[in-house]
Deep mutational scan, measured.
Amino acid sequence: KELVLALYDYQEKSPREVTMKKGDILTLLNSTNKDWWKVEVADRQGFVPAAYVKKL
């Protein structure tokens, strides 16, 4: 499975999103959308801005 690194803190703004902290390592589930990537963090799945994460 592919992992991404959170480059910035992100606070979810809708139930479809997830909160992450800078430095978090997240499991990447889907990166087909260039703006929003689906990730899993702490047993929750949701979207984060693609610009806020980097593939490892």
Score class of each variant (00 low, 15 high):
E40V: 11
G23F: 05
G46K: 02
L28I: 05
W36V: 03
A42S: 12
K21S: 10
P15M: 10
N33W: 07
E2T: 15
V39R: 00
A42K: 13
E40C: 11
A51S: 14
L28A: 02
Y8S: 08
L56M: 10
M20W: 00
Y8C: 13
Q45R: 11
K1G: 11
R16L: 14
V41A: 15
A51M: 12
D43N: 14
Q11W: 13
R16W: 15
W36A: 02
A6E: 01
Y52M: 12
E2F: 10
A51W: 09
Y10G: 00
K22V: 08
T19D: 04
V18D: 00
V41G: 14
K22G: 06
Y8R: 15
N30W: 08
T32H: 12
K55T: 08
T19I: 03
T32N: 12
D24C: 06
K54A: 13
A51K: 15
D24V: 05
K22W: 03
L29F: 04
P15T: 10
V48K: 01
L28D: 00
W37R: 01
K1P: 13
A6P: 00
I25N: 03
Y52N: 05
T32G: 11
K1T: 13
E2P: 11
R16I: 12
K55G: 05
F47Y: 15
D9Q: 04
Y8D: 08
Q11S: 12
K13L: 10
K13Y: 05
L56W: 09
R44C: 05
Y52F: 14
T27Q: 12
W37P: 01
W36L: 03
D9I: 02
D24M: 14
P49T: 02
L5M: 14
V4N: 00
K38V: 14
S31E: 15
D43C: 11
T32E: 15
P49A: 02
L7K: 06
K54Y: 12
G46V: 05
D43G: 15
P49S: 02
V39M: 02
S14V: 05
E40I: 10
E17N: 05
V53P: 01
W37I: 05
N30K: 07
A6H: 01
D24H: 05
T19P: 07
T32W: 09
K22H: 06
L26P: 01
V41M: 14
S31R: 08
K55E: 07
A42W: 11
K21C: 11
G23A: 03
L5I: 15
L26Q: 01
A42M: 14
K22M: 09
T32S: 15
P49E: 02
T32Q: 14
D43E: 13
K13E: 08
Y52S: 12
L56R: 03
L7C: 08
K1A: 13
Q45K: 11
I25L: 09
K1F: 14
L3H: 09
A51H: 13
E17A: 06
E40F: 06
L28T: 00
L3S: 08
Q45N: 11
G23W: 06
M20C: 06
Y8M: 14
V4H: 04
V53N: 01
V53R: 00
K34L: 11
Q11N: 13
K54L: 14
N33Y: 09
L3I: 09
D43V: 06
V39A: 01
V39G: 00
G46T: 02
K22I: 06
R16D: 14
Y10L: 02
E17I: 04
E2N: 14
K13V: 08
A50F: 02
T19V: 03
S31I: 06
R16E: 12
L29A: 03
M20Y: 01
I25G: 01
V48W: 01
F47W: 15
R44P: 00
E12D: 05
K55R: 14
A42E: 13
K55M: 12
D9G: 06
T27C: 11
T27A: 13
L7P: 00
I25M: 06
T19N: 08
K34P: 12
V53Q: 00
I25V: 12
G23E: 02
G46E: 02
A42Q: 13
S14H: 11
W36S: 02
G46D: 00
A51P: 10
L3T: 09
E17H: 07
L3E: 07
Y8P: 00
W36P: 00
K1L: 14
E40M: 11
Y10N: 00
W36E: 04
V39P: 00
V39N: 00
A50Y: 02
E2C: 13
P15A: 12
S14A: 09
V4A: 10
A50K: 06
Y8V: 11
V48L: 03
Y8N: 09
V4F: 06
V39W: 01
Q45A: 13
A42G: 15
S14N: 14
V48I: 09
N33P: 04
L26T: 01
V41T: 15
